[in-house]
Design a binder for these strands. Structure first.
Length: 989
RNA sequence: GGCCCAGUGGCGGAAUUGGCAGACGCGACGGACUUAAAAUCCGUUCCAUGGCGACAUGGGUGUGGGUUCGAGUCCCACCUGGGCCACCA
């Protein structure tokens, strides 16, 4: 009989479902085997979209499935779950447009996707499946939020602690309140009551309750703050910085985003900045992803410096700089337009100009700022400040190239050594004073780009630079040696940059003019959304403005039933914010406790909340008493330690796209660390190993209007070279221009242009996996997706290529099963002695495939199986000693056919728990090997030597070879290099 | 503009990480089977030159240089493509 993939695949998918083949027991369950090591392999769970999957989506799922199946055969307890990140905008927008409750849409989409995933034969434990929208799930998302709310970050321990412990410290006078509201307490080693009254500090019991409350609220990891937020009027919601694109638009929907102050929930992720950077060293992640996280957190080290305004009030302006060594070169200052001191210090003469510039800057969208980022703008305030190192009086400007949100919102400008300050200084004719010696290379390079400098020698250039830096095209921003930097007390001149930084910082600290400081680009995480379809906050607002957390026993706070989900979208960026939940029933909105009537928090959490911890819930998804049980969490998250390998535990393999490099992965690490500090989980990091799969790309075709056409109806006519003319914006000039293309591709007889990019519905080039399964079988689809190329690279889909792996499977079937009779073509002949070539090839293949599975090089593993299979084609029957390992090697990759063949080989259980085949190392190496012989690095001939021949014997064989003798005749052999098992190289001349 | 990644036949890719470049597949070409097509099977397929021919000689991993007995792999500069960040002081 022929290979009937449709029947066979359906048969085994049914078998796996009925027998719960992939159910994974937890510690304590009957079927649990405590002797096996664990392996937790996880996909980034998808949003259940209504349009269904295209073949690009399951790439990672197929890969993790292969790993899961392989690891089971290698004797691991494997946890391999799948779920759905189901809160979010599309379901809500669909609800707004069609009046269908998002839960209905979501559940329907989940069902569709589960069906599509099951057709791929993925070995998930479906009993563990969950959606972030399940009430049983988001109950615990709310619980984790309360953990954050009830905690503070203790800088002394560099960890989160329950806020009750802070209250106790304050009550016991182990900590005090600084008059500015900050909590101060002795360093960790000196804990204990301070003797006597610390001068100027406030005692806890002396403070009124409201002040106590404010102080605690200001310390919590989850806190309310009035902050300038990214407000998207069209979506009627705020967005996190990470959700706003470069050009100031919403990542979803591409709507304009403006800044406006709003009271919002924030999570204190900045407290973890240092640990989020440091702990990256402990995880096995791709370096580029680690780098992106480090850049996102954006740590920089430098110093604060206080400048005094030259005015009767003598206000202090604090700046942040990474180059305190250039302080002598600070010739002016710049404040952000929104800086609070601007109003106070501006002189009457400049007031009008300053006010109009501030108004202009406020009105400018980020798009405008982007567009002319090269053009520096600014206005002088008329005020001056004193440079503390040389008492120079320097002007204070405002300019929008300084941002209020970073550092102190004020800078000292050192135009000689900062590109932006240099441009600004040139534009407004401000003095430029070099205080760092430029390098020779830099000077000569600059001279070539500048007019009138080409002819100068190095010394002349140096003199020129020091006397007239404005004549150079750029600022020197490197780190070398300080020059022109001295005052009565401190000489930096001659010091290397590093030392100069340290010296001046010490001097500033001694004079109380500044101090060393670290800055991060990372901001606290804006956690409120003005949406319906998200987790409600477990928070109550009292009439007096105080906040009360919902008691843990009263969770979950369920979303109220509603008909109108519409956010209050508006064209007016200043319109009053009205969240959908503000229109919930009065009985939902109001709660009376202890005689006080509270109003519920009417914002919801962002979509990231649910995906921050789903990997933990998979471990114990049905637990009603805890978010995850301690035993199960400890078993699945703590890796068995291997000697010498650093380990942070966590998930053994986490696979997903690189688009989550800084959003999901940073947020999830943050939550996990909080839970770790609070002793709720066992490991400091959630994802021990991360793997980023590439994208499946596809050709897309556009007609002369630039409109996409159905890619699967495009035909290729080689050599046609049809012309197609199109109006296009020229990238360089920015003008519309006619552009002519030549193409061999046609859509309904009209020429079309081939483009290349991601697969997707909008590009009309999506390929449906269901169709591929119908046509070729899902084993073929699985093999093809893996055979395409390395998993971490993007590569193009070509439906016509899938026949390659499909033929392989058919050929393999025919090698095992007679097409006519259906008889098994496997012989039970005992292995030959000595082992024949086929036995050797089998062992070589087992060895190679094992290594390739471990390396996740599935494309090469498949190639090796094809080679072995090709060697079987000419045989009338396959020996059992070859057939069984072959089927087992195939099992993770093409599980349906493997199960069927395994059954036909006479086994009555699923091969998913069969041990992985082993190989005899002696059979992997041939007795005799052929070695290439190079002369002067070029291969000239080959010799055959015993595999275990020593270097001397190989050398002699090579030198006595006729061809070699001929070629080295008359030359002196200088050296013979023998690389064991590889080659021989003769150096002769 | 900064940082990161990649560049190998007509195409996707392989090369045990410094050791025989082009495994395996697609496509193409030639042949077998067939009334025919599909399917299947066999052979050829990096380029150039020579030969009917198994073959011989030379060149070859984006470009130019370098290190090395030996470079697709390491170093320097450049070109091209992709990604991330982008006035972060």
């Amino acid at each position: 009989m022929k290979y009937d993939f449709a029947a066979i695949e359906a048969k085994w998918q049914k078998h796996w479902a009925e027998h719960k083949t992939f159910r994974t027991p937890n510690p304590g369950d009957d079927a649990f085997d405590p002797d096996k090591p664990k392996f937790y392999v996880l996909d980034m769970f998808p949003y259940p979209s209504g349009v269904g999957l295209h073949v690009g989506h399951p790439l990672g799922y197929i890969a993790t499935d292969i790993v899961a199946r392989y690891k089971r055969m290698r004797g691991f307890n494997v946890l391999h779950p799948m779920g759905f990140d189901a809160f979010g905008l599309p379901a809500e927008q669909f609800a707004v447009e069609h009046g269908v409750h998002p839960r209905v849409t979501t559940e329907k989409n989940v069902a569709t996707m589960v069906g599509q995933l099951k057709r791929l034969g993925l070995s998930y434990d479906w009993d563990r499946s969950l959606s972030t929208t399940d009430v049983d799930y988001y109950k615990w998302t709310q619980w984790i939020f309360l953990q954050l709310y009830h905690s503070w970050f203790d800088p002394a321990e560099n960890a989160a602690r329950p806020i009750d412990e802070l209250v106790n410290m304050l009550k016991n006078e182990q900590a005090y309140v600084h008059p500015d509201g900050d909590v101060v307490y002795p360093p960790a080693e000196g804990l204990g009551p301070i003797e006597g009254d610390p001068i100027g500090m406030l005692k806890w019991h002396e403070l009124p309750p409201e002040e106590q409350r404010d102080i605690l609220d200001s310390k919590r990891l989850a806190y309310l703050a009035e902050v300038p937020v990214n407000w998207c009027p069209a979506l009627g919601t705020v967005l996190a910085n990470e959700e706003v694109t470069n050009d100031g638009r919403s990542e979803r929907g591409n709507h304009p985003v403006v800044k406006r102050p709003l009271k919002q929930w924030m999570l204190r992720i900045t407290a973890y900045a240092e640990r989020l950077i440091d702990d990256l060293e402990q995880v096995a992640w791709p370096e580029p992803i680690k780098l992106m996280q480090r850049n996102w957190i954006g740590k920089s080290e430098g110093a604060y410096v206080d400048f005094t305004v030259d005015s009767p009030d003598a206000q202090l302006i604090r700046v942040y700089t990474t180059r305190p060594d250039t302080l002598f070169g600070a010739t002016y200052m710049v404040l952000a337009p929104e800086h609070p001191l601007v109003d106070e210090i501006t002189t009457d003469a400049q007031r009008a100009a300053v006010n109009s510039y501030r108004a202009e800057a406020a009105a400018r969208s980020d798009v405008d700022r982007m567009a002319d980022a090269k053009e520096k703008t600014g206005v002088a305030t008329g005020a001056h400040a004193i440079n503390p190192v040389n008492n120079e009086r320097i002007p204070i400007w405002i300019a929008d190239y300084v941002m209020m949100g970073y550092g102190t919102g004020a800078i000292m400008a050192v135009p000689a050594h900062d590109d932006r300050d240099f441009e600004f200084a040139k534009q407004f004719d401000l003095p430029i004073r070099p205080v760092v010696a430029p390098t020779h290379d830099w000077l000569t390079e600059q001279a070539q780009a500048a007019e009138g400098l080409q002819s100068l020698g190095t010394d002349a250039l140096r003199t020129q630079y020091e006397s007239n830096p404005a004549s150079f095209p750029a600022a020197f921003t490197g780190a070398t040696t300080s020059i022109n930097s001295e005052n009565d007390e401190r000489i930096l001149t001659g010091l290397p940059t590093d030392e100069a930084k340290a010296h001046i910082t010490v001097w500033l600290e001694g004079k109380d003019l500044g101090k060393a400081a670290v800055q991060y680009k990372l901001r606290d995480w804006l956690f409120s959304r003005q949406r319906y379809w998200g987790e409600p906050f477990p928070i109550l607002h009292a009439p007096d403005g105080s906040i009360r957390a919902v008691d843990v026993n009263d969770l979950p706070v369920e979303l109220p039933p509603m008909d109108d989900f519409k956010p209050h979208a508006s064209d007016d960026p200043n319109a009053e914010v009205q969240t959908p939940l503000s229109r919930a029933s009065e009985s939902w909105k109001h709660v009376t406790l202890d005689g006080v009537t509270y109003t519920r928090e009417l914002n919801t959490m962002p979509q990231w909340a649910g995906s921050c911890w789903y990997y933990l819930r998979f471990i114990d998804p049905k637990n009603n008493d805890r978010f995850v049980s301690d035993d199960a969490e400890h078993y699945w998250m703590v890796s068995p330690k291997k000697d010498g390998t650093p380990h942070t535990g966590g998930i053994d393999l986490y696979v997903g796209g690189a688009e989550h490099a800084v959003l999901h992965l940073l947020y999830a690490r943050f939550w996990h660390k909080v839970l770790f500090d609070l002793k709720q989980v066992s490991t400091p990091e959630p994802f021990g190993r991360l793997f980023n799969q590439g994208y499946i790309q596809a050709y897309a075709f556009t007609d002369e209007r630039g409109v996409y056409v159905e890619a699967d109806q495009v035909e290729e006519r080689p050599g046609a070279q049809a012309k197609i003319t199109r109006m296009e914006v020229n990238r360089k000039t920015g003008h519309n221009a006619e552009k002519v293309y030549k193409t061999d591709y046609f859509y309904k007889d009209n020429p079309v242009i081939r483009e290349y990019g991601k697969m997707g519905k909008s590009l009309k080039n999506a390929v449906n996996p269901d169709e591929m399964c119908d046509q070729f079988g899902c084993d073929s689809l699985r093999l093809y997706e893996m055979y395409l190329g390395p998993l971490d690279q993007s590569k193009p889909w070509r439906t016509e290529d899938i026949v390659g792996v499909h033929r392989f499977l058919q050929r393999l079937w025919r090698n095992f099963v007679d097409d006519e009779t259906g008889d098994l073509l496997v012989s039970n002949d005992p292995p030959t002695d000595p082992p024949d070539d086929l036995t050797r090839l089998t062992h070589k293949t087992i060895a190679a495939v094992t290594g390739l599975m471990d390396a996740m090089s599935f494309n090469v593993a498949i190639a090796k199986l094809i080679e072995l299979n090709n060697a079987l084609v000419a045989l009338p029957t396959v020996p059992r000693g070859v057939a069984e390992p072959m089927v087992l090697l195939l099992a993770p990759l093409a599980p349906h056919m493997a199960e069927e063949l395994w059954q036909r080989l006479g086994h009555d259980t699923s091969l998913s728990a069969e041990p992985w085949p082993t190989f005899d190392p002696a059979l992997v190496v041939d007795d005799e090997i052929e070695l290439p012989v190079q002369i002067m690095g070029k291969v000239r001939t080959r010799i055959t030597v015993p595999a275990d021949a020593d270097d001397k014997a190989v050398e002699e064989t090579a030198l006595s070879d006729d061809k070699v003798k001929e070629l080295i005749d008359g030359k002196t052999v200088r050296k013979v290099i023998v690389v064991k098992g590889r080659l021989v190289n003769i150096v002769a001349n």
